[in-house]
């Protein structure tokens, strides 16, 4: 698949906090963090994007990060609370979303979504919505 990326990118404005979708345009989270690799004698390079509650909590401060982490250890479905996306997986960046060359079901991003689907939603009789059955 051919990549569709802009020539120039302002990381904070054009990438951080943007909606992330998978190959099939399923919304899978947001760019909660960006990690640069610092290289000797060369400009830094974006190594990976991060998604997940522990990444968000860290942005709010160390204390909040500890609370969220403790909470996650107790009842967490996804214990790490973090999903790292290598830059190579970034397929397309447009003004309203970032598309990854992944399938969301194969990533940790939908751990909670799947847990809730299987343990709660599956037990409620569904309506007429949606094409799949």
């Amino acid at each position: 698949m051919k990549k569709k990326l802009p020539d120039e990118l302002e990381l904070a404005r054009d990438l951080l906090d943007k909606q992330v979708v998978d190959r099939d345009e399923t919304k899978m989270g947001r760019v909660d963090g960006l990690v640069l690799e610092l290289r000797e004698g060369k400009p830094p390079r974006v190594d990976h994007l991060e998604m997940g509650s522990s990444v968000l909590a860290r942005r709010l401060g160390p204390r909040i990060e500890r609370w969220v982490s403790a909470f996650r250890q107790r009842i967490g479905v996804q214990k790490a609370g973090r999903y790292r996306v290598p830059w190579e997986k970034v397929q397309e960046i447009v003004p309203y979303q970032v598309k990854l060359d992944v399938k969301v079901d194969e990533t940790p991003a939908f751990a909670w979504e799947h847990w809730l689907r299987d343990h709660v939603i599956a037990h409620i009789p569904r309506g007429l919505k949606g094409k799949t059955d």
Partner: peptide, 18 residues
Amino acid sequence: GWNWGEDLDPREDARFCL
């Protein structure tokens, strides 16, 4: 950034429906 949409089957956007 969760999946959302009132036309989706609730199994596709569990967190939105909940």
